[in-house]
Design a protein around this nucleic acid. Structure first.
Lengths: 120, 120
DNA sequence: ATAACATATGAACAGATGTTCAAATGAAAG
DNA sequence: CTTTCATTTGAACATCTGTTCATATGTTAT
């Protein structure tokens, strides 16, 4: 076993102690990574993805979305609540009906990235 | 109910029928949207996000990652399996140890997009 | 006021998900 | 072969998640 091998395999405690302490310093704080995961978790449900996709094209009221996706209005409303809390959609009231739309262009970009990854 | 009522759209049928049929035609097929959601679901867990983040910096073996994240090697292995199946990480064997690394640059881009959305 | 309608909400349930634990591979060394 | 080490795997468990159902809120019209 030569010197290089010895460096790589370490002595017993850890396999690559230098690498570990080096990477440890560059890690963003716990909370940010948690928030990041939480953001992606929102996109990680096909009902929500469909809602966002549908809102790509136009603002829409709850019952429109419900019919488009052939789901109950309640289910859609629950998911819109999640999307609202994550600031991914916004809404405006017009009489009895409430129109939802995408909050900003990041949604488009993020979903676009996902599409690109799939089409390979 | 009579015919006149039916024609007048007051029957509770739909709020915006034209919009619905228009958007309906532009919808990608069900399966693609499902796959898209599934891709994002992978990013939607903080353990997996941390693993990916750590692999930004260097290829690493399972026990390194486990120590960096202060988690059991088993938990890490289970998650690496998920990431492997989604083609987000790749690996190579070198003796007893297995080195994992990012499969391609899409991972970086997608996570980057998420970061951008958060920092607003 | 009441009725009709669009949406929201809470509780409950089934199914999915992440971690742990114990045991099983698989590879190198003695 | 046996031991040791790095990793994988399966089952069990507790937690989380999405939908449904029934009910509540809020708005407009009668």
């Amino acid at each position: 076993m030569d010197e290089q091998e010895r460096m790589e395999q370490g002595t017993g405690e850890t396999l690559h102690p230098d690498l570990i302490s080096s990477v440890n310093q560059d890690m963003p704080d716990e909370e940010m990574l948690y928030d990041l995961a939480e953001l992606f978790r929102i996109f990680g449900d096909s009902t929500r993805i469909k809602i966002l996709y549908v809102l790509f094209e136009a603002e829409m009221c709850v019952c429109d979305i419900a019919e488009l996706l052939r789901m109950t209005q309640s289910a859609i409303s629950h998911q819109l609540r999640v999307l609202k809390q994550s600031k991914l959609v916004k809404f405006r009231r017009e009489g009895k009906t409430i129109y939802y739309s995408l909050a900003d262009d990041h949604v488009r970009t993020i979903i676009g990235m996902g599409m690109e990854h799939l089409c390979e």
